[in-house]
């Protein structure tokens, strides 16, 4: 009995167990404090689904043997460029959203291929190099936002000042186009059907890719390059493919995130966006070299709902924004835990 219980705990993993119990505790507290539960649940749904694709972006990169994609900001800035160009061209609603996608995806493919090629030169150090590659691209793009030849009044400062605004409101552009699509209310809880559907479709596509000839080759190369080579698989190529898909998902992910959030965040905002996504998938039970779609779903749900529920509950008990600190501690703590667990590559 005892050993069974222990093996069950080991299977679930201590971090997941701790976080899940903590979440449960918070939910109970929320209930006791008579908070608006349906509202809370619909926030959980929205936050989970809007972050989901950014977390999903970790899957192909981990499967391809690159580790979590710490260079996610590369994909994210591609998505943002897509959005600002689409706004400049004056598209609105779904047209705006999809034209942003249409511009962002080819950019992300290009960036993913180039960066993937670089990653092949730094095998074994992808995470460290990736972190700073992401940082430098994101900070380099600050100059772009400042100097970009874009003049839409929705994006530039109203009273002069150079460059694009730090946050661009999407109100009247493509704010919540996915969230509102087929949305409905049930027991007072608002369900953003389109957003969830979009996340699920993306997940299914990634899953389908994982079952394809190329996808299987990529996973083989990720989990054992020696096996892959002896099966005639071009390991460098599958690594580039994995990185490219991850970058594209990063670009899509930020657009989905932005339309739900209602704002485009430029300049330094993308800098640290990889870390919560990495933390989420690790919380879901993934490790640096193994990840599945299930990990994405569980991890995003646990991490995001924890943050959503923690904020109002702690606000009632103590002053100040405890949720932000919780995010930092839990997120980075999780990454730290994962980094110190599996054996180093060198």
């Amino acid at each position: 009995m005892r050993s069974n219980a222990i093996s069950l705990i080991n299977n679930i993993g201590y971090p997941r167990l701790i976080i899940a119990s903590f979440l449960l505790l918070l939910l109970i507290m929320a209930f006791v404090l008579e908070m608006d539960m349906p509202d809370l649940f619909s926030s959980v749904l929205i936050r989970t689904a809007m972050n989901g694709i950014l977390v999903l972006a970790m899957v192909p990169s981990i499967k391809a043997g690159l580790g979590p994609n710490f260079a996610l900001p590369i994909g994210i800035v591609c998505g943002l460029v897509g959005a600002v160009v689409s706004i400049e061209m004056g598209y609105q609603g779904f047209a705006g959203f999809f034209s942003a996608l249409a511009i962002a995806i080819p950019l992300a493919i290009l960036a993913g291929i180039i960066y993937g090629y670089l990653l092949n030169k730094v095998k074994g150090q992808e995470m460290t190099v990736g972190t700073y590659a992401g940082f430098s691209i994101a900070s380099g793009m600050c100059i772009f936002w400042l100097l970009a030849p874009l003049y839409s009044p929705k994006m530039i400062w109203p009273y002069g000042g150079a460059g694009l605004r730090v946050t661009i409101t999407l109100d009247g552009i493509f704010d919540k186009v996915l969230n509102n699509f087929l949305s409905f209310e049930i027991f007072g809880m608002w369900v953003p059907t389109g957003l969830i559907l979009f996340w699920i479709i993306c997940s299914l596509l990634v899953k389908m890719f994982a079952r394809s000839k190329t996808g299987l080759a990529m996973q083989a190369a990720g989990s054992n390059p020696g096996f892959a080579r002896s099966s005639g698989i071009n390991v460098n190529q599958t690594r580039i493919i994995g990185n490219t898909i991850s970058t594209v998902l990063g670009a899509i992910g930020i657009l989905v995130y932005a339309q739900s959030y209602g704002f485009l965040q430029l300049y330094t905002a993308p800098l640290f966006m990889a870390f919560p996504a990495v933390a989420a998938i690790l919380i879901g039970g993934a490790s640096i070299n193994k990840a599945t779609i299930t990990h994405v779903f569980i991890g995003t749900f646990l991490f995001q709902s924890l943050l959503v529920v923690a904020m109002p509950v702690t606000n009632l008990i103590i002053q100040g924004n405890m949720a932000e600190i919780a995010r930092i501690i839990i997120g980075n703590g999780m990454i730290l835990y994962a980094l110190t667990r599996s054996v180093g590559s060198e």
């Binding site: 996973q219 083989a220 989990s223 054992n224 020696g226 096996f227 080579r229 002896s230 193994k290």
Partner: peptide, 14 residues
């Protein structure tokens, strides 16, 4: 069939 069963021969987590 490689001499390096774990390194080349198998995908251990498949």
């Amino acid at each position: 069939v490689s001499e390096d069963r774990r390194g080349v021969g198998l995908l251990l987590d498949e």
